[in-house]
């Protein structure tokens, strides 16, 4: 599976959103992306890409697009 597919899949499964909503999705836009959902999403992404994010990056991960920038730091190109 391509990286972008894995990335999208983590959002879709964790936050129960459809793919067409992803591009503009931000923290708290949907009910499932609360603090609990956020940690579940981070765990899913770490699992999918076999990485460990720094706490600062977990805090900064405020949207679908911002997440792409952050994952680049960990060698994940999307």
């Amino acid at each position: 599976m391509a990286n972008i597919e894995k990335y999208n899949q983590a959002f879709i499964e964790t936050l129960e959103v459809t793919e067409d909503k992803l591009a503009t999705l931000k923290y708290h836009d949907v009910e499932a992306w609360d603090s609990v959902g956020h940690m579940t999403l981070m765990a899913a992404l770490e699992d999918a890409f076999d990485i460990m994010m720094e706490t600062e990056d977990i805090v900064d991960f405020s949207s679908y697009e911002k997440g792409k920038e952050i994952l680049k730091k960990y060698g994940v190109d999307l």
Binding site: M39, T40, M42, T55
Partner: peptide, 10 residues
Amino acid sequence: TQGLIRMFIR
């Protein structure tokens, strides 16, 4: 704990 709880969350 911060580092390891991700495993528990997962």
